Simulated scan of single mutants.
Amino acid sequence: MTDPLYELKAAIITTLRGDARVSGFVARRVYDRVPTGDQAPPSPYVSMGPFDGTEDSADCIDGLAVSLQIDVWSWGDGEAYSSAECSKIAQAVRRALHDRELALPAAALVNLRHRMTRIMQASDGITNHGALTFEATLEG
């Protein structure tokens, strides 16, 4: 039995890596778990944040209400120094996913909706951080 949350996360990563607007900024640097040490990615990149699934079943339908966060990270000179690059990448992520129909191996995605985008400075004082919140409904 597959995990519908994992299926959704994998489909989102595949979609973002294949989206021309997103990949124009980050190439294929979209991660479930961000590499560290010598393998740490350069700026900018996108990573998966927290995923929460809540039971949302009805008569004869197994349902799951999902809240998920996608993070954008940017630092450096020019637009990367300000929040402009981070904001542009967040906008590309939102456009790539909002109301997008994603095929999942076993579950069915009923909807995927963008709810909020926050752009802030990370605690290091250098990195710009975008946090996009989405809600999804899964069946199956």
Rank of each mutant, 00 (worst) to 15 (best):
S123L: 05
Y81C: 04
G140F: 04
Q91L: 15
L132A: 14
H129C: 00
Q121E: 14
S74C: 10
Y45D: 01
I61L: 14
G24F: 04
R94D: 06
L5S: 12
E135V: 09
L97P: 00
L112D: 02
L104C: 07
A10K: 09
A65V: 03
V72I: 13
Y31W: 15
P42T: 07
T117M: 12
T127P: 02
L16A: 01
G37V: 05
E55T: 08
R17Q: 11
E135I: 10
S74G: 11
T137D: 08
R33M: 13
S23N: 12
L64R: 03
E7S: 05
S83Q: 10
V22M: 08
L138V: 08
P50S: 14
H98P: 01
L109R: 01
L5N: 04
D71M: 04
E79D: 11
C86K: 00
E79A: 07
Q91R: 12
D38N: 06
P41D: 10
C60D: 15
Q91V: 12
Q69T: 15
R28P: 04
A108C: 08
R115V: 14
S82A: 11
S47I: 03
H114S: 10
R29I: 02
E135H: 12
A106F: 08
L16S: 01
V110I: 12
W73T: 00
V46C: 03
T15G: 02
V72Q: 01
R113T: 05
G18L: 04
P42S: 13
D19E: 10
L97H: 02
S87Q: 08
I13S: 03
V22H: 02
D38I: 04
R118F: 03
R33I: 12
P105R: 02
S57C: 13
F25T: 01
L16R: 00
G63Y: 08
A136W: 02
V22C: 03
